[in-house]
Amino acid sequence: MRTRVAHIASNTFREAVRDRVLYNLIAFALLLSGAAILVGQISIEIEKLVVINLGLTAVSLFGVVIAIFIGIGLVSKEIEKRTLYTVLSRPVRRWEFIVGKFFGLAGTLVVNTFFMAIGVFAALFYVSHKFVRADALILVALYFIVLEFLIVCSLALLFSSFSSPLLSAVFAFSLFVIGSFAEDLRNFAGMAHGLSHWLATGAAYLVPNFSAFNVITSIAHEQPVAGQLILQNTLYAVFYAAMALSGAVLIFEHRDLK
């Protein structure tokens, strides 16, 4: 059972690599090296701040775009092209297929993030000519970004299990944007009254709280991240992704593959 999930995950990763998804790293490298050179010339004392902000934001955005655009096709493309028929006619359970696809995409994003992280550190070294202890905090920000990817992947898979790729992309991207302002939504819910209070509270807790994962600015200012936040975010991401994946499995388990 576990091996079948691993085989499906490894094939999903291979597909991403062969479909040249990792080519985005070239665009990322160009963007970051260009920015580092430019920043090195025009900014005084804040080069490091700019490079960390720009680098980590780019890591997050590139990853989210990949997560959404691959994630939305993971199930629907297999149904449309009928590649699924020869997989599900084997001793593969539908949930194994969904979970395998999720891990395959998550693996792709982790590898992608790893190479991007090298790029961020290289740019940082270029502008500051040395590493300091506080730079290790960047790893925490990268970890949070990966957790964010897990949630986005699971949401893209959830939408992909019942709607068209286009609608799935719209849903997933909208949730990402709304989730990035989840704290504001919670504040609004706190101020609202009556029905709108309940509706806003419900929405605020239903959408993924991506704002809790955004520690880029504080890390750029070398402010440490509390261990409690790391634990909280980890549990939240695992729980949210598991819920979204369960939803995807539940829908897919009952879907006719016409």
Binding site: N11, R14, E15, R18, D19, K81, R82, T83, Y85, T86, S89
Partner: peptide, 13 residues
């Protein structure tokens, strides 16, 4: 059991 679907399409990569 083995199954060959009609007009099969496989992972072309």
């Amino acid at each position: 059991i083995g199954f060959l679907p009609e007009q099969p399409y496989f992972y072309d990569y």
